[in-house]
């Protein structure tokens, strides 16, 4: 089995490790780096449970991305949204709106929300619903998740998001 030294920048920290070349980013996060907050749902790009943020803006499915393809990019997982023990406004909004039931979809939902708001700080309800197309939730029925995204958008200082060029670290 071919392996390769890989350097991944996750939540502002560089991690250097050796991994088989067929490692997906999701496996690298969960199995090599033990950052298990990012979830495996379907493994084929359909559920959004594995969503992470690239360079503060673009959401991608880590299950369909090779770890080597993420070298040189800034990866943010939901663990990186919390800074110095302080929850991110998006996380607070999800809690306050009751947008979490079993919680399996939540890490992906939060990262997708971060991407929606980084690209469009004041989305309409329609834009939020379309924006969440790629994230499945088996529990909540989506209403509260949509409300949480609206609340997060109200809570956040939009100029700050734009100035920092995205979300996360």
């Amino acid at each position: 089995m071919r392996t390769k030294m890989i350097t991944l920048c996750v939540n502002g920290r560089d991690h250097r490790f050796e991994a088989p070349v067929n490692r997906t980013l999701l496996q690298a996060l969960r199995d090599d780096l033990k950052l298990t907050e990012t979830k495996y749902g379907c493994g084929t790009g359909e559920c959004g449970g594995c969503t992470v943020l690239m360079d503060g803006k673009d959401s991608i499915c880590s299950c369909l991305t090779l770890a080597v393809e993420a070298e040189g990019r800034h990866i943010t997982t939901v663990g990186g949204m919390t800074q110095d023990g302080e929850l991110h406004p998006i996380q607070i909004a999800f809690i306050e709106e009751g947008a979490i039931q079993c919680g399996y979809c939540t890490p992906g939902m939060i990262m997708r929300t971060a991407s929606i708001l980084a690209n469009n700080p004041t989305p309409s309800e329609e834009e939020i619903r379309r924006g969440l197309d790629g994230n499945l939730c088996r529990c909540t029925g989506y209403e509260k998740i949509v409300q949480a995204v609206q609340r997060a958008s109200q809570m956040m200082d939009t100029t700050q998001i734009q100035k920092s060029g995205g979300m996360g670290q």
Binding site: G48, T51, S59, I60, T65, R112, S115, G131, D133
Partner: peptide, 9 residues
């Protein structure tokens, strides 16, 4: 086409 994540990839 697909979902926002897939359109990014």
């Amino acid at each position: 086409f697909a979902t926002p994540q897939i359109r990014n990839m």
